[in-house]
Amino acid sequence: MALLESKRAEPTVCHISAEPELIHVDCVSHIYPDGSLGIHNLCFKVQEKEIVAVCGGNGSGKSTLLEHLNGLLSPSDGCVSVFGKRLDAQTKKSLWKDVGIVFQRAEDQLFAPTVLDDVMFGPLNMGMNIEDAKQVAFESLKAVGAEELVNKMPNYLSGGQKRLVSMAGVLAMKPKIMALDEPTSDLDPNHAEIIEKIILELKNKYGISVVIATHDLDLAAQIADRICIVKSGSIIAEGTPAEIFYNSELLEEAGLKKPKIVQIYDEFCKSRGLERKNRPVTVVELAKCFTCE
C-alpha cells in the first residue's frame, strides 16, 4: 500500500507504475475563484479496465478531482494527462468523448423533454446522425435496464430511474472511462444494487475503466479494484480494498467508517478470540471465511 503523507507543505509523491495509464493526474492543485482549496498536490491514475474508488468525507475534494478528469475544471497547478497526452485547451475540447462523467444529482443532468432525447444528446453532439444516435440510445438504455422509460418525461421519473437514465446518457457516448460521482447516494438498497451491478458490467462487459467518488465504503468494498482515500484535497492512502479497509487508524483519520463486512468480520473474530487471518471485503469472501473458520 502506498501510504502518502497528507501534509500540505510537502508535495505528495507521484507513483507512476509501468502499467498502461489512461489518466494521470500529476500533483494537481485546484483553487476555486472564492479562494477555497479544492484539491492540493494530488496525484492519481486510472489504468485500463479497473474500478477505482475515490473515498473521502464531504468536502474532501472527490468531486473536484472527478471534474478534472473530464476537463470541466482546469488545474491551478500541476497537469493532467489522458491517454498519454497532456491536457491543454485543444485536447480538452474532445475529452468529453473519452471520459464520461455522471454527476451526483441526476436531476441536473436530465434536461430534454423525453428520456430518449436526453440519452441521444451526447451521441448527437459527437456528430452521429439521428438514426444512429437513436440506436445507440436504445442500446444504452437497455444496458442499464431502463428501456421501458424511453418515452417518459424526466420530470416524472423516480430518483433511481433518473440515475439509471443519466448513466445511460453517458454510456451512449461509449467512453473509455466513466467517472461516477456518488452513484448510490439517495438510492434505496434495490436501486443501489442495480447500480453496483451496472458498474461491474461496465468494466467486465464493455471494458470501461470506472472511477467512483463515494463515501459509501460498502459499495467501494464490493466493486472496487483499488481504493484511494482523500482528505482535505489530497490522497492520503492508496491500495486494494483489503489493505485500506482493515486499517482502522487510516479510516478514522479520513473521517470514514469501516464497511459493514469488515465490521462483521472484526466482531466475529473478536467474539471467538480468533486472529484476523483473512481480510474479507465482499459478501462472498466473508461467507468463505465463516465456512473455513
Binding site: 470541466l72 454527476f103 444529482r105 430518449l116 432525447d117 453532439n125 457516448m173
Partner: peptide, 20 residues
C-alpha cells in the same frame, strides 16, 4: 450545474431536438 453536465456531454451551444 446543468450547463456543466451538458458540457460534459459535448454541449457547445447547440441543442438538437431529435424526437421523431
Amino acid at each position: 450545474r446543468v450547463n456543466k453536465a451538458m458540457e460534459a456531454r459535448g454541449y457547445s451551444g447547440k441543442y438538437i431536438a431529435a424526437t421523431g
